[in-house]
Design a protein around this nucleic acid. Sequence first.
DNA 1: TTTATTTAGTTGCATATACAACAAAAGTTT
DNA 2: AAACTTTTGTTGTATATGCAACTAAATAAA
Lengths: 145, 145
Amino acid sequence: MALKKSYDLLENVDPWICIASKLSLSIRVVSAIYRKHLKAHNVTMSQLSLLMVIGKHKSLPQSEIGKILKLERSTVTRDLKRMIDQGYFVKKGDKTRQVIYITDKGASYVESIIPDWRAATQEAKTKLGEDGEQALDLVLHKLMG
Amino acid sequence: MALKKSYDLLENVDPWICIASKLSLSIRVVSAIYRKHLKAHNVTMSQLSLLMVIGKHKSLPQSEIGKILKLERSTVTRDLKRMIDQGYFVKKGDKTRQVIYITDKGASYVESIIPDWRAATQEAKTKLGEDGEQALDLVLHKLMG
DNA sequence: TTTATTTAGTTGCATATACAACAAAAGTTT
DNA sequence: AAACTTTTGTTGTATATGCAACTAAATAAA
């Protein structure tokens, strides 16, 4: 089972200096908190983000959604499709300039979820603490800036 | 297209106070940096994490891997399977106590990737700045603690 | 020691995500 | 106006991920 050679780079590397790994780990911890609170609503954070972002504007061009959430076009197409099928959004417009509208069903749905979403956010904030929350804002600001 | 009612909670909510959304956005930005640098190696960050973590220990019980990377058991099973199929790891042991070993092929592979991984990490660090990097460490520390 | 419980791994199912290739529409150049 | 370029949306393909249900093995309780 032993390796035939020695691997210096590998032996001396520290996987935990990886920025992507740190963020991945962080999102897994936080996602679990949100999933727990949102479970009864049968909604994911990705879906809730769409509901809240589009809902707040009442409607958004599909092309804007990807820009706002930094999602690839095909991801937006398919994430929306599932929710259109469920009646939370409708799509209007021609082939290349689609506009997505939230429906009353979608708006009611997101309103029913918001209290639990707030609770999840509160739990996450408590875990982060005041300083942790500010730190996260700084990270985001640096990355988006 | 207009909504039939008004939705107070929805109109007044700020989607961007969401901790999960902030982290999701952050990871998308950082992932893109790593994908760009790792593209030529045809490897993802998830795979590279497995290679580095297991490789550094030479071997790890499968059950440990999920604990270290905070991944669900089934995710570990399948992420490993793809890489075992490619010959980067081997699996030894009985039905419920598996141990995963890195192979020479896997160790060579990860060593060939490390320089570009370092470059990606450097680019991400530059974007974050010294303060942003410390902020990320604080976030992770708070969430894991 | 037998029984009950916990731990470990797998498989079915569903969502989320990106890239490449394609088609169609919109915008720009000439 | 015609030709070229960019933007937008979709579909094929692949990886990543979690939950539920199941099996099997290990551990604890009786």
